[in-house]
Amino acid sequence: NQASVVANQLIPISTHLTLVMMRSEVVTPVGIPAEDIPRLVSMQVNRAVPLGTTLMPDMVKGYA
C-alpha cells in the first residue's frame, strides 16, 4: 500500500505548503504520493483543505 499526502491541519486557500502542514498516511482513495512531499513545499493549494483530507493533484497549483 502506497502512502499519500494528507493535510495535518486546515490549509486555507492559496496557502504555500510547508512540511508541518502535511503527513503521509495510507488512505483510500490514493492521492499525491508521500514521496512527493519535498516537491510540494512552497506550492500553493487552490482550495481550502480540511484537516485529514488527502491531497489530490488538482488541489495543488502547478503539481499536475
Rank of each mutant, 00 (worst) to 15 (best):
I37Y: 03
G62Y: 08
S14V: 04
L40H: 00
T15E: 09
S4N: 01
V30Y: 11
L10W: 10
R47G: 05
P57K: 06
T28I: 10
N46C: 08
V45A: 05
M43G: 02
M22N: 02
P12K: 08
V45C: 06
S4G: 05
L51Q: 14
R39P: 02
P57H: 08
P29H: 05
P12T: 09
P38D: 13
G62H: 13
E25R: 06
Q44Y: 08
I11Y: 03
P57W: 06
P12A: 08
R47A: 09
A3P: 12
V20G: 13
R39M: 10
V45F: 00
I13F: 11
S24V: 12
D36F: 11
R23A: 09
I37C: 05
A48S: 15
P50A: 12
V27P: 00
P33F: 09
A64M: 15
L40S: 00
M22L: 14
S4I: 02
P50C: 07
R39H: 09
P50N: 12
T18D: 08
S14I: 04
A7C: 04
N1S: 15
T18V: 06
A34W: 06
A7W: 01
I11H: 02
P29M: 05
V26I: 14
G31S: 02
P57L: 04
R23Y: 05
K61S: 13
Q9P: 01
V20D: 12
R39I: 08
I32K: 00
M59C: 06
M59R: 00
K61F: 13
P33G: 05
I11N: 01
L19R: 13
M22Q: 00
P57M: 06
P38T: 12
L55V: 06
T28Y: 10
I11W: 02
Q2C: 11
P50L: 13
I13V: 14
P29I: 07
E25N: 08
V30M: 13
I13L: 12
V30L: 13
V6S: 02
K61N: 13
L51H: 13
L17I: 14
G62K: 06
P33T: 08
A34S: 13
I13W: 09
R39Y: 11
I32G: 02
M22R: 00
Q9V: 11
T54I: 08
L10P: 10
A3V: 07
V41A: 04
I13T: 12
V49R: 01
N1E: 15
V6H: 02
I13Y: 14
V20C: 13
L10F: 13
H16N: 10
A48V: 14
N8G: 06
R23T: 07
M43L: 11
A3M: 09
M56H: 10
Q44G: 03
G52I: 03
T54P: 08
E35C: 14
A64K: 13
V60Y: 01
S42I: 03
I11T: 00
V60Q: 00
I11G: 00
L51C: 10
N8C: 11
A64N: 12
A64Y: 06
N1H: 11
P33C: 15
L40I: 09
N1C: 07
L10Q: 15
L10D: 14
V30W: 09
R47N: 08
L17F: 00
V5T: 07
L10S: 15
P57I: 05
M22W: 03
A48M: 15
T18W: 03
P57G: 07
I37L: 14
L55Y: 00
G62V: 04
L17Y: 00
V45K: 01
M21E: 03
L51E: 15
I32Q: 01
T54L: 04
Q44E: 12
N46D: 11
V5A: 12
M22G: 01
M59W: 13
Y63Q: 03
V30H: 12
L40N: 00
A3Y: 10
N46F: 05
G52H: 08
M59V: 08
Q2G: 15
I37R: 06
P50F: 06
